[in-house]
Nucleic acid binder design. Structure first.
Ligand SMILES: [Mn+2]
Ligand SMILES: [Mn+2]
Ligand SMILES: [Zn+2]
Ligand SMILES: [Zn+2]
Lengths: 135, 135
DNA sequence: TTGGTAATTTATAACCATTCTAAAGTAGAG
DNA sequence: CTCTACTTTAGAATGGTTATAAATTACCAA
């Protein structure tokens, strides 16, 4: 089963038809050796460079959101005017250089969070994210 | 030294003249028994209710940013369309209920973060923030 | 006190990432 | 191949935030 089939698989799982545009997005997202962080504008540049075709912003927004909702991408909880996404979907944390708007992964095993108090009013803990700001 | 003098002090320290509008903002921010989290729109409602006067958005944005820059308020690193501020300027962490857009403090002593890897490329760690999402 | 001047307030416009819209194009079942 | 539902796209709308510039106010010096 080659990469292409995986992309088709992913798109179908996200409830999306495997169109040319969506496959181009998947290639740029998932055919890389390393995971990476991106904004929509940055992804647009990457996909258009990789595929040598224009792609509309609307398609990028729609596809990225669908892939995120299906769990193939993560949205990163960072304040800022632009939203960051992550092709690393494993549980992990981040260094964040605000000046550069640049993220670096911290593997889950390389950080320890303990003594968590329990959530208020019978709420349940959904995730624990550590953000280490650096300068 | 009463509260008013403290407000004037804070404003002067932030490089701001103590005007009626800015003092009204300070009263609504710092005369409460408990610290709290707010968005600009929410603060506008609070200040206008407390002071029974209209206040422009621009003045709120400017004053809140100046107070933040001087360290009298904290901006909270949470993704979302609106920016959250915090009158609790001590080092602490947060529970966050995304559905309700509601924050609850976690005191620093009530959470333990260990084994932090060192920052990349000779960068320095500026802060370590834990965000616990709840549902 | 009184001007004079710089700071401030305000309404409104501009900005810009994101979402919405609706028309034109396309995929794929049958 | 045809039909229909889905998709793509350009452009408009949205909404929080920031910029602008005219009217107002604070406050120092005379
Ligand atoms: Mn989103
Ligand atoms: Mn800000
Ligand atoms: Zn990451
Ligand atoms: Zn807080």
């Amino acid at each position: 089963m080659d990469q292409l089939e995986f992309h088709i698989e992913r798109l179908r799982a996200a409830g999306l038809r495997p169109t040319k545009q969506r496959l181009a997005i998947c290639k740029s997202l998932f055919n890389k050796k390393e995971t990476f962080h991106f904004t929509i504008e940055k992804l647009k540049k990457i996909v258009e460079k990789d595929s040598r075709k224009k792609i509309s912003l609307a398609t990028l927004y729609n596809t990225v959101h669908s892939l995120k909702n299906r769990g193939y991408l993560k949205e990163i909880s960072i304040k800022g005017n632009k939203t960051f996404f992550d092709t690393n979907t494993k549980h992990h944390h981040h260094f964040y250089d605000e000046r550069m708007s640049q993220l670096v992964d911290i593997e889950d095993k390389n950080i320890l969070v303990g003594n968590l108090p329990k959530a208020p009013n019978g709420k349940k803990i959904k995730s624990v994210e550590v953000l280490v700001k650096i300068v």
